[in-house]
Each structure stands twice: as C-alpha cells, then as structure tokens.
Design a protein around this nucleic acid. Structure first.
Lengths: 228, 228
DNA sequence: TCGCCGCTGTCATGTTACTGTCATAATTCT
DNA sequence: AGAATTATGACAGTAACATGACAGCGGCGA
C-alpha cells in the first residue's frame, strides 16, 4: 500500500539524493534518468506520483508532463516539478503543463516530503466517516466518540478500531488472523493471542452498559459482533 | 485567513469586474477564463469557493460543477452560478448541478457580495466574520477579541485561528495534518509536532477560566473542541 | 538604523497511556 | 479426566503526547 514515486532526473547525484529521501520516508522510489526510460517504466507499471525535473536532456520536463496529461491512462497521476529557477514565469509554465505542484532547487528534504505528502493527500479519498449504530452502540468516526445506551465510553485507539470494524461488518465471524489484517494492518507481526487481550479490553469497556454480550466468541474460529 | 474565490468566466470584462469586487471585499480572487485552466488551478490549490459562469466556451458551467461535485476532493467547495437570464433559474435548479446559489446578470456588486457571504457562512463557517460563541467562549473575528466566561483574554494570531476553526467545527476530531491544512494553509511546511505547541498555548490562555478542558486530546487521532 | 518585543517553529526532556506478551486460571470439547 | 482453547490480570517497553526552553524572524517605535 506504499505509494510508488517515479523520479525523472538526469543528474545522477540529485537523482540519488531524491531516491534516498523518498525511500527514507516510506515510499518506493522508481528511478529514470531520461524521458525514454521513464516512458518505459510507466508502460510497465503506473506510479502513484511523478517527480519531474524541469530540464532534461531529450524532452523537457514540461513536454513530458503534457504527454502524461494527454494520455487517458496517466492523466490522473500527480506531478511535482523540480525547477532550478525561481522566476514566476517558470512556475506558471509548470502549472500550465499540468503539474500539481512545483519545487525550486535547492530544496530541503523536509520541504520535498511535505509537498509529496500534501499532493498525495489531495488525491487520496478519505475513509468512511459515517456514524455507525447497532445494538445500542453508537460510534462516530469523525468525533471519535462511542456511546453505549447513550452513555459515553472511553476506548483506546485499538479497541476503537476493532469496534468500528465489527460494527461495519456485523454477524460475520473473523479469525484472529483476519482481525489482525483488518484492524492492525496487513504486514504487522503481532502474536495472535494479542487479539484476545484487546477483545477483553473492548468487552470491559462495554460491560457497564451490559452490551459486552454483543462481542461473541466462536470457539475454534474467532470473534463476532452480533447486534441481534 | 482570507477566503480565496475562483472566478470562472470567459468574458474578460465581466471577469475583471467580478475580480475587482471580490478583492474589494477582502477576498482573494483567482481568475480563470475557461474550464481547463480552472481545473489546473484547482489541482494546484483548492479555492474556498467557485464563482461559475453558466455559459462557457469549452465545457458548460453545469458540467464543470458536476465534475467538482463528483470528485471527493472538491465536493465540499461552495459554488455560485452566474446566469444571464432569469429563465435559466429553473434550469439551474432543475438540473441539480449542485450549485449552492445562483445569481442572474446583471447583478449589483452589493447583491453578489451578500450572496458570497451568505454561502460562506453556510458552508465555511470559519470564513464568515460572525461572532462565534460556544461552551462559554466568545470569539469575534472582526474585532479579533476573545473572552472566556466574560473575561477578555489574549491570544496570539495562530492560537486565535485555531480557536476560531475549532469553534466553528466543534466535536469533530482533527488530525495534526488536517489542522495544518486548515489553520496554517494548504502548502505550508511545518513540523506536525508544532501543532502540539500551539494547542498548549491555547490551553494555557484558556486555563485561568477553567475552559481549557474544552480542547481535548484524542490519542492517536488528534484534537477536538468539545463545548459539551 | 538599531534595539526591543512578541510570535513562531523546533527541539529536548518529562509524562502518560497504550500495547503486546506472558503466566495462569477458567472454560469447553472429546 | 485430559486436551485444547479462550479469559484474565499483571507488567515492562514504548509510542504518543505535554511541557519548557530557545533561537530566528519581523514589526515597531525610539
């Protein structure tokens, strides 16, 4: 689920610097020294974003950006332009060519990362924010509040996520492994028995209102949320 | 933070007239003569509102409005439609283009501004200039004054903006990133932890009146203003 | 022009609350 | 009963947050 970022930059030193920073921040850097190889890489697999140098040996960055924007397949890939000059004219041209943002060299790694994240954030849809209600429990992701039979209750982050997942997937049994994947995230190494403990904590929080019965154990299989 | 308003209008004379009036009223006018450049501008930075001509050379205003509404990122931007004749009103309404309001040409600057303010008040509360009051705190954007339980208190500019944003968006939890976007501005590069510090300063200012409890920490998520 | 002062963003350090793991008790099944 | 599975309580490590200190910046008046 980590975003891949195609870096198109002919200067090897800057190329490496960019790749290092991008990788450092948890993205996957894909490197191209010119437009031709960039095109090949894009044909092979679409990146989630393109970091594009303004000046390139064969085609200019602006021209390449224009081509990306023209092609239906690549139209929606965000582009950040790297430009050496600070003149307003270049900025305008960069934006005219369809770049989402631009950054002038020299730049700090921090600023670069901030811009990358900002652009990705603008493009990425938000997760579900609907208030869920079932079996006397109400959970609102936006206010991050939970109430059982009208009484506010206090959950830790993990218990909150488990409950949210359960309420949006009621009645169905989930194994510990599935819960780890869904609630903790795919590639996390956590002991399976840890799930038990968090289920316990969730039940404890629901206990005062008597709604702990909604979280049911299915021996040999896992757990289930059953609003009845 | 002044609201930025994107004006999409192909007639240069009217474009300028609109821009002049918008700027005159303390907003920031961003100008586009057609849908294509409007799209580019929006990709770069989201405006707080769109003033949209009904008839445009390339895509019609309605079509553009529909696209804005379809995209998760732009869904919540208020739109005001400009139409040439009264009879278009029904069409605009009937087509459900998603506009928040419409205004027929010719229009008086006064009327235009009134509608802009009305829509902003409805859709972007923190942009309007009205005095907000919640949980014993009163904040007046125009005079830049804040009082807690009747006692006047003294805030720095940033703390003022945070509090204003919070008061116009109560109960909802905002991540540090979201707060940076909303209070600092879209592409400002500031360390996330800086938010903590300003929250601290805001709480410190509220402390004497005991209202610092209104600013709540939601561990793992962000902060929330809860007037109870 | 200079120095003062308030505001800002960052860092280092202190504090708190959550997490994951284990050991052990309590179930349930065969 | 014995085996397998789950419940529960305790605990240490740690991630997330709070707080205080500080240097840089910009505005403002002397």
């Amino acid at each position: 689920m980590t975003a891949s970022i195609l870096i198109v930059e002919d200067e090897p030193a800057i190329q490496e610097l960019l790749a290092f920073n991008v990788n450092q921040c948890g993205f996957k850097a894909i490197q191209a020294l010119d437009v031709m190889s960039a095109t090949r890489l894009i044909n092979h697999a679409l990146p989630d974003m393109v970091l594009l140098d303004w000046m390139l040996p064969d085609t200019t960055g602006v021209e390449f950006a224009r081509r990306l924007r023209a092609d239906q397949r690549t139209r929606n890939i965000p582009i950040i332009m790297l430009t050496a000059r600070t003149e307003e004219r270049d900025k305008v041209m960069g934006l005219e060519s369809g770049a989402d943002d631009y950054i002038t060299k020299p730049f700090s790694p921090r600023e670069l990362m901030a811009r990358i994240r900002a652009v990705l954030r603008r493009r990425m849809p938000e997760m579900s924010e609907e208030t869920v209600s079932a079996g006397g429990v109400e959970l609102s992701p936006t206010t991050h509040r939970v109430s059982a039979k009208g009484v506010k209750l206090d959950l830790g982050p993990t218990e909150f996520r488990i409950l949210h997942f359960f309420m949006t997937h009621p009645e169905r049994v989930y194994s510990r492994t599935q819960l780890l994947d869904q609630v903790w995230g795919d590639h996390v190494f956590v002991e399976e028995r840890t799930v038990d403990v968090h289920i316990r904590r969730l039940r404890q929080a629901l206990e005062p209102s008597g709604l702990d019965i909604l979280v049911q154990t299915v021996r040999g299989s896992g757990y289930r949320f059953s609003p009845g």
